[in-house]
């Protein structure tokens, strides 16, 4: 699986962003329906069936693929909604369905054999046994790797499995193992697995105080900012907390993932596809990031050195702090 050219998989929160990503050089875009069947169920985001069909036509006309994320866990007694989403994605001509729930995987495997199945990061399959189980049971063709593995571990994993791997290289970073984190529902009642949202916006408040602004989620103070200091979105795991007599960003600093410097390493580790996070981001952002990563991936494919790759991606910091995350072992 190491021989081919690496595929660049890019986010599309709206039809306009889909077109922007395709035009900026995405080999594939991923998107979801405007409901709780996908893990970016934010107000105003995502696709209707009609928009998806148009998006698929546009992408295919431009030589790109469309991967549809139906990657939340189906609600009891309502599995039909998730099955219907998979049926619609198949009818629209999606190249692959990205799923995590056994119920959804089973439905697609049995009813839509022509559509590739990708195992979502929400399934948190990180071992050869787990991935093997999904491959044997549902015929998954690719696994999106949980963001807990180092590059060395990914290389070892790729030697032990038969399916393709896709690795996140840029954007937001979950610190917790995805698909197995209930912090959001603990605080707000809504969670990625149940509702496709983490730290939902309707529970967010920015409260101005005499000499600061507090960012709260469901009344819990997640961070506090000085006047004029850039504020952050109160995502639970990126908050400042007190523990053991210390006040710190206990779980993770407010950083985002940038594994641009590891593209060559990931290729050597046998990774098939590189994924950019950010279906909630605007088309300006997506265009810029996709363009830069397109250049970087092409440069890596042509044997470009680390200095060249760094130069290409230098503008992609957005002013925010970045980390290579778990790809580098000392992150743990």
């Amino acid at each position: 699986m190491t021989s081919g050219r690496m595929e660049l998989v890019c986010p599309a929160g709206t039809p306009a962003t889909l077109r922007a990503a395709v035009q900026a050089g995405a080999d594939a875009v991923y998107c979801g329906f405007r409901d709780e069947t996908n893990a970016r169920n934010f107000p105003g985001l995502n696709f209707s069936a009609e928009e998806l069909a148009e998006g698929v036509r546009f992408a295919h006309d431009h030589g790109s693929k469309v991967l549809v994320a139906i990657n939340t866990f189906a609600r009891v007694n309502d599995v039909g909604l998730w099955k219907k989403a998979a049926d619609t994605a198949a009818e629209c001509g999606a190249n692959a369905i990205i799923a995590a729930d056994i119920a959804v995987l089973d439905h697609v495997a049995k009813n839509h054999k022509q559509v590739r199945l990708h195992l979502s990061v929400q399934a948190a399959a990180a071992t050869p046994e787990a991935i093997g189980f999904y491959a044997t049971s549902f015929g998954i063709r690719r696994v999106v790797l949980p963001r807990v593995l180092s590059v060395q571990e990914i290389a070892a994993l790729n030697r032990a499995i038969e399916v393709e791997t896709e690795a996140f290289v840029f954007g937001g970073l979950c610190v917790m193992i995805e698909g197995r984190c209930y912090l959001s529902s603990y605080a707000t009642g809504k969670s990625p697995n149940l509702n496709g949202v983490c730290s939902p916006p309707e529970m967010v408040s920015y409260d101005d105080e005499p000499n600061s602004t507090a960012a709260r989620l469901s009344g819990f103070t997640i961070d506090r900012y000085e006047p004029g200091e850039p504020v952050g979105y109160p995502t639970l795991c990126k908050g400042k907390f007190k523990a053991g007599g210390k006040t710190s960003y206990l779980f993770e600093d407010p950083v985002s993932l940038n594994a641009g410097g590891m593209i060559a390493g990931l290729k050597a580790a046998g990774v098939t596809a590189l994924k950019i996070e950010g279906r909630q981001r605007g088309k300006g952002y997506v265009t810029e990031v996709v363009r830069a990563f397109r250049k970087a991936v092409d440069a890596v494919e042509q044997g470009g050195d680390a200095i060249e790759i760094d130069r290409i991606l230098a503008g992609q910091s957005e002013g925010s702090r970045q980390t290579a995350g778990a790809y580098s072992k000392k992150w743990r």
């Binding site: 929160g13 306009a16 962003t17 934010f42 107000p43 105003g44 985001l45 309707e202 920015y206 088309k283």
Partner: peptide, 20 residues
């Protein structure tokens, strides 16, 4: 700066974003 119902702001932002 934004205050009030954050989800309504987000919906507006995403709508404008797609509207081109």
């Amino acid at each position: 700066s934004i205050s009030g119902r954050t989800e309504a702001v987000l919906a507006l932002r995403n709508t404008i974003e797609d509207a081109e």
